[in-house]
Amino acid sequence: MSYAGWILLTASLVGVTCGLIGVLLILRRMAMMADAISHTVLLGIVCAYIITRELNGIHMLIGAVLVGLMTAVLVQWFHSRGVQQEAAIGVVFTTLFAIGVILIATKVGNAHLDVQHTLMGEITFIPWEKVNIPLLGNIPEAVVLLTLVLVTVLFFILAFYKEWKITSFDPMLAASIGLPVMLLHYLFMSLVSLTTVAAFDAVGAIMVVAMLITPAASAYLWTNRLSWMFVISSIFGVMSAFMGYYIAVWLDTSISGAMAFSTGIIFIISFIFSKKYGVFSSRYLQKEKD
């Protein structure tokens, strides 16, 4: 596959995986939690590096997932003590992210790990870091990792589809019929953390947040059916990847930044033209009523 092909494949995998997870984030009104986890995982990555002095390996994934879960637990704990959820998210994620930034500045040294890399990612380097897979040959590490994460996310979404549906739309009903609401909540937070970490190194925090929230928000404007929302959100994620890449080539700018910008373009188009909630359709329906 060509250099550009690997970049597009990597970004598309991010778009699909984040698109699937993002739907549940939007329905659960937890969009800001995606922003929080996408930043706080930096602390887990830095801590894992300080302990092992290696930038690659499963320890990075484990450290980031643990901090992502810690973020969810702390937010839930503060909220249960009377702090508004938005305030709890703001306090926890800014504090943990700041600790990560301080550790990078004081403990990491000359390693290839800095704040700019954290925010914007290094998707242009993805095709060069490869591993040999039997029968498939040399494949970029990020593609392998993102594929495994996508399979994992798909498995849990399909395995607990009815449970996700009930707990997302009516958590009180889910609790009343005996569903383990808190267990599912932390399982979902684990999937969010896993997805965020897998995409973090490739595309950076900005694009992770954009891909988690905006395609799902756009899909929500087009359909009320959960199954179709998953499909449309994933398609919008892939579209954003391709649009962003060619915009970046055209303007000679950041690929990840352009892909994040493309999610915004798709949302604006959806906001204007979607059949049920779009600005034009709403005005048309209003005229019919008049």
Rank of each mutant, 00 (worst) to 15 (best):
Ile177Ser: 08
Ile177Met: 13
Val115Trp: 09
Thr17His: 05
Asp114Gly: 13
Gly19Lys: 11
Met33Trp: 09
Phe93Lys: 13
Tyr277Asp: 06
Ala260Asn: 02
Val192Ile: 15
Gly109Lys: 01
His185Arg: 13
Ile104Cys: 05
Met70Trp: 03
Met120Gly: 01
Leu119Asn: 02
Ser176Cys: 13
Leu191Thr: 03
Phe280Ser: 00
Lys162Gln: 14
Phe273Asp: 11
Val181Lys: 00
Lys289Met: 10
Val92Gln: 04
Ala98Trp: 08
Arg283Ser: 12
Phe188Ile: 03
Phe78Arg: 15
Glu54Arg: 15
Leu135Gly: 09
Tyr49Phe: 13
Ala174Asn: 05
Ala36Glu: 05
Glu163Arg: 14
Val151Ser: 08
Ser190Met: 14
Ala260Asp: 04
Arg225Glu: 12
Ala219Arg: 08
Ser233Val: 03
Ile177Lys: 11
Gly257Gln: 12
Trp228Ile: 03
Ser274Leu: 01
Ser227Arg: 15
Trp250Leu: 13
Arg53Gly: 10
Ile206Tyr: 02
Ile206Asn: 00
Ser38Pro: 05
Ala111Ser: 05
Ser176Asp: 10
Met259Thr: 11
Val65Trp: 01
Ser282Cys: 06
Met60Glu: 02
Gly68Lys: 14
Phe78Met: 15
Val151Gln: 04
Phe236His: 00
Leu25Met: 14
Thr40Gly: 06
Gly57Arg: 07
Val92Ser: 10
Lys287Cys: 00
Gln116His: 09
Ile104Gln: 11
Gly121Met: 03
Thr167Val: 12
Leu27Asn: 13
Gly82Thr: 08
Met211Thr: 11
Ala260Lys: 09
Val192Leu: 14
Val14Arg: 10
Val144Lys: 00
Arg225Asn: 09
